[in-house]
Each structure stands twice: as structure tokens, then as C-alpha cells.
């Protein structure tokens, strides 16, 4: 089967509860498509658990529709945050 098309989202700065609502809307607009979603974290400095939890929910939602959520270029600090709360499975790049 040919690989699915990807849509890429680029984030920057600190992703935390302040952006949670905007991110929720952004993900909400993508939830019914057919592409995989790539989140480019190369410019993300830090992340809080409210956002990690949302990514988890969004990732599960896509997986049920045979789509994938891919986190790319996650720096060490942000990666440490995912490990800290036992959500490292989200970081497995495809």
C-alpha cells in the first residue's frame, strides 16, 4: 500500500495550557482527514502535560482511523518531558 500523504504542522516556543484551546481547534480541523499528521517540534522549547495529554488523545484518535501522528525533531528537554510522565511511546517516529 502506498504511504499516506502527510500534513505537517510546525510549532514553536513553549506549548502549554495557554495554547491548549488553540491547539485543540487546530487538531480538531485535522481529525477527519485521511492524511498522517506530522508535528514538527524543532522549534519547540518546552511542553506541559496539558498539551502532552491532548497529543495522546489526538494520536489515539488518528490510530483508530489508521492514521498516524508523528512527532519530528523533538529536542532533549521536550523528549525528557514525555519520558517523565510515561508518555514516551508518542515519540516513536515512523
Amino acid at each position: 500500500m502506498p504511504p499516506k500523504k502527510q500534513e505537517k504542522l510546525e510549532f514553536s516556543g513553549i506549548l502549554d495550557i495557554r495554547q491548549a484551546e488553540d491547539l485543540h481547534n487546530t487538531f480538531g480541523n485535522l481529525k477527519d482527514g485521511k492524511t498522517n499528521i506530522v508535528l514538527d517540534f524543532s522549534k519547540v522549547d518546552d511542553i506541559d502535560f496539558a498539551v502532552i495529554q491532548m497529543i495522546f488523545s489526538f494520536s489515539n484518535h488518528l490510530a483508530e482511523k489508521k492514521r498516524q501522528l508523528i512527532l519530528k525533531s523533538v529536542n532533549e528537554k521536550v523528549s525528557g518531558r514525555f519520558n517523565l510522565c510515561d508518555c514516551k511511546s508518542l515519540l516513536q517516529e515512523n
Binding site: 491547539l23 481529525k31 495529554q53 510522565c85
Partner: peptide, 24 residues
């Protein structure tokens, strides 16, 4: 060592970004 109980995180359709769903 940390184990996250994330079974309560709902599907994105009903996900509320302001609610904390997990325990550890």
C-alpha cells in the same frame, strides 16, 4: 520510575483540553 494510567483519556471527539484525565 513512573507508570501513567492514561486509560481515562477520552477520544479526541469528546476531549476537553482543560481537564486532567490521568493518574500516575
Amino acid at each position: 520510575a513512573c507508570i501513567c494510567h492514561n486509560e481515562s483519556i477520552p477520544d479526541f471527539e469528546v476531549f476537553n483540553p482543560e481537564v486532567c484525565y490521568v493518574s500516575w
